[in-house]
Amino acid sequence: MQPASKISVIVTTYNRPDALTAVIEACFAQDDPHFEIIIADDGSSNNTRECVEALRRRSPVPLRHVWQSDEGFRAARVRNLGTLAASGDYIVFLDGDCIPPPHFVSQHRKLARPGFIVSGSRVLMSEQYTRRLLDARINLHKLGALERLRLRLGGHFNKFLQTVLVLPDVGRERRKFTWRRIKSCNLAVWRSDLDRVNGFDESFTGWGHEDSDLVVRLYNAGVLRKDGAFATEVYHLWHHENLRDHATSNRKVVLQRAADGTTQAKTGLREMARTAGAAPVAAPPSAALPSETGDGQVRSTI
C-alpha cells in the first residue's frame, strides 16, 4: 500500500475565530506531526486574520492562510484555493468548526489508499455545550468515557460509541456509489485525483452539494470510497443552518452528472491556476503560491 508522504489539512473558515482557534489548537495536538495546515478563508474580516497570525506564530507545523473576498458562500472556490496552496500529495478537507481528535491525521494516513477517497464522520454537538466548550476552552480529548456517555445521554452529543472506539481498516471499501456520509467537513482525497477531475466546481455557489458533486465526478473517473466512521470522527460545533436557497438546483446538477458520467469541473483547479499564474495542476504542486491581492491573497507564509 502506498503511504501518503505528506498530508495537507485544508481548514475552511468564515468569521468564526473562536471555533477556528479550537480546531487549529486540536491540529497542533496531533500524534502525527508530518502534515501542514492551510486555512482557506471564505472572506472573513480582520478578526480572523489576527487570530490566524497568532496561531501561526506558535504552530508546530507549517501553517498558511489563504483568503478570498466575501461574495457569499463560495466553499468550492476557497477549497480549490487551499488546494493550490498545499504541498502535500494527500489532502484532508476539514471545516473550521470541526474539532479533530489527536489521532485524526494518523488515522487518515492509515486509511489512505490509491484509488480511494475517505469520507470521514462527525459527532454533532448541542448549542449549549458548544458555547460552554468555547467559553471555557474545554479540551474534548481529555474527557473520559463516562463523561462522553453523559454528554450523549444529555443530548449534547448525537453519538457515543464513535467517540470511544477506533475500528481497524476492515470492510470500509464501497464499490458502489452512495450518497451516504458525503461531507466535505471531513473528506480525504489524493491530490492527483483532485487534479484528475479539476477539483471542486466553483460554479456551485450558495450552500449545498458541491461536495457531492466532487465525489460523483471522482466516482465517474474510477475513484471509489472508503468509510472513515469509527476512525476519523470530528466534533462538529453547533451553528445556525446556512441558507439553502441553491440546494435544489445544485442537487439537480449533481444528479445529471451522475447520470451522464461527467468527470470534469466546469470551473476548477486548472482555471484558478491559470488566473493565479501558478503551475498547471497536472504538475506537482509548488511549495507556495506567489503573493496576490484581492481574491487568492496569501495572508501569511510557512
Rank of each mutant, 00 (worst) to 15 (best):
V105E: 05
V105T: 09
S106D: 11
S106W: 07
S106E: 11
Q107M: 08
Q107L: 03
H108C: 03
R109L: 10
K110N: 11
K110A: 13
K110W: 03
L111K: 03
L111I: 10
A112K: 09
A112E: 09
A112F: 15
A112M: 13
P114G: 11
P114T: 08
G115Q: 12
G115E: 15
G115A: 12
G115K: 08
F116G: 02
F116Y: 13
I117W: 06
I117T: 14
I117K: 04
I117E: 10
S119R: 10
S119T: 07
G120W: 00
G120Q: 02
S121Y: 01
S121I: 00
R122K: 12
V123N: 05
L124C: 04
L124T: 04
M125I: 00
S126H: 05
S126R: 05
S126F: 03
S126N: 04
S126M: 08
S126E: 05
S126P: 07
E127M: 03
E127R: 13
E127N: 06
Q128T: 09
Q128C: 07
Q128G: 09
Y129M: 11
Y129T: 06
Y129Q: 07
T130N: 02
T130E: 01
T130W: 00
R131S: 10
R131H: 13
R132C: 15
R132A: 15
L134R: 05
L134T: 10
D135R: 08
A136H: 07
A136I: 03
A136W: 01
A136C: 08
R137P: 05
R137H: 13
I138D: 00
I138E: 01
I138N: 01
N139W: 01
N139Q: 04
N139V: 02
H141C: 06
H141Y: 14
H141S: 06
K142P: 02
K142Q: 15
K142L: 15
K142N: 11
K142E: 14
L143T: 05
L143H: 10
L143I: 11
L143G: 04
A145W: 10
A145G: 12
L146I: 12
L146Y: 07
L146D: 08
E147F: 09
E147Y: 10
R148A: 01
R148S: 03
R148N: 05
R148I: 00
R148K: 15
R148W: 02
L149Q: 11
R150D: 11
R150G: 12
L151T: 01
L151C: 06
R152F: 15
R152Q: 13
R152W: 15
L153R: 10
L153A: 12
L153S: 09
L153Q: 12
